[in-house]
Each structure stands twice: as structure tokens, then as C-alpha cells.
Amino acid sequence: MPIPSHKVTICGIPELAQHCAVGVSHLLSIIDTHEPRPPALDDYFEVDHELIRFDDVVAEYPGFEACTPAHIEKVLLFGERAHSKAGSHVLVHCHAGVSRSTAAAAILMCQHAPGREVEAFLKLLELRKHGWPNTRMVEFADRLLKRDGAMMEGLVAYRRALLLAKPHLSEIIRNIGRGHELPT
């Protein structure tokens, strides 16, 4: 089975209008709890759309709603629907197209490809020129899909490959308070 079994596109809210006429069949929106519904979503007709709200944090912080296993269960149910339609084109977006959307795209690619988690995560390098998947989301998906750490290994492999190509990102990741996520 190829990774992914369906076409996957990743973007942020500002890019949504660019993709509404390219045959998207499934749209996964992951936005902050207080983010207004993006008006560009109105341009997506007759698509299977799932809107999930949680903030882009990788731990519990006061004033933020962190991802929970229930959120990832919704992502996986969405993935089941997308996977069941031949030739589906999945568009995944979050606010900037960097953290939650790349994590969700990787989760969707891993969902029906056990044993190919590293390959699925490395596919992100082709799908999005910049990204830093949300660790918390991947941890929950790894547990829910019973992958025994394989998805986390895929995430680390992706981050190593990304930082090899773009070493300057290490400093950016440290500056945004996520330096603990840098591979050792």
C-alpha cells in the first residue's frame, strides 16, 4: 500500500482559498478553541468536513485547551471516512499549517500503514516545506493505534531529516519554547 493511500495536502488558514477548486473530497480543520470559523471554509462544497478545536500546545497550560485522546479519536474517525473513499483528496489545515496539521496528516498516513510510520512521517518533507508536528497529538495517536512507539520513531526521523536540511530551525524551535522536542 502506498503512503498515503489518498492524496494529502497541508495548509494554513491563509492558504485555504488556494485549494477550494482542486478536487478536495475531505477537509480536516484543526483550529484554536477561540479562533473564529475561517470564512474560506464556505468555498468548500460537498466535502466531508471535520472541524476540531484545540490549541497548539504540547502540554497542559493554564488558559489553553490541549489536545486530548478524544480529539485524536475524531481525527482517526475522519481518516476512516477518507480511507474508505477511493481516490480521496484530503486537505488538512490548522492556523499556520505547521504543527497540528502536519501531525494530523502524518497520523492519517500512518493510520492504515502499520510498520511504515517512518516512511509516512518522511513523506511530510515532500508535502510541506516547513512543519514541526505537534508531539502530543502523535503520542496520543501512537497509543490509540497501538504502534508501541513506532509513530514517535517516525516523528524523530522526520525532525532529524528536516534539521539536516534546515539546521537554522533548531534555534527557532528553541525560541518558541519547544527545544525539548529537538532530537538528540
Rank of each mutant, 00 (worst) to 15 (best):
P2Q: 12
P2R: 13
P4S: 11
P4Y: 04
P4N: 13
S5A: 14
S5G: 15
H6D: 00
K7S: 15
T9F: 14
I10T: 01
C11D: 05
E15L: 11
L16R: 00
A17P: 05
H19K: 10
H19S: 09
H19Y: 15
C20F: 07
A21Y: 09
A21N: 15
A21T: 12
A21E: 15
G23I: 08
V24A: 02
S25P: 01
L27R: 00
L28R: 02
I30A: 00
I30L: 10
E35H: 10
E35Q: 10
P38W: 10
A40D: 14
L41V: 01
L41H: 08
D42N: 04
D43I: 06
Y44R: 02
F45V: 11
I52D: 02
I52Y: 01
D55N: 07
V57L: 08
V57A: 12
E60L: 11
G63R: 02
G63P: 01
C67Y: 04
P69R: 06
P69L: 12
A70T: 10
H71F: 08
H71C: 14
H71N: 13
I72Y: 00
K74N: 05
V75D: 00
L77P: 00
H83I: 02
K85H: 11
H89E: 07
V90W: 02
V92M: 02
V92F: 04
H93N: 07
H93S: 03
C94A: 12
H95G: 08
H95V: 07
A96P: 01
G97W: 04
V98Q: 00
V98G: 05
V98C: 11
A104W: 01
A106V: 13
C110F: 03
H112A: 06
R116N: 15
V118S: 04
E119I: 09
A120D: 00
F121R: 03
L122S: 02
K123P: 00
L127W: 03
L127K: 11
R128C: 04
W132L: 03
W132H: 10
T135R: 07
T135L: 07
R136N: 06
F140Y: 15
F140V: 04
A141P: 06
D142E: 13
R143E: 15
R143M: 08
L144V: 05
R147I: 08
D148N: 15
G149L: 14
G149F: 09
M152G: 02
G154S: 14
L155V: 03
V156G: 03
Y158S: 03
R159D: 02
A161M: 09
A161V: 08
L163W: 06
L163S: 03
L163A: 09
L164I: 06
A165V: 09
K166A: 10
H168F: 12
H168V: 13
L169E: 06
S170H: 11
I173Y: 03
R174Q: 15
R174H: 13
G177T: 05
E181W: 09
L182S: 09
P183F: 14
T184E: 15
T184G: 12
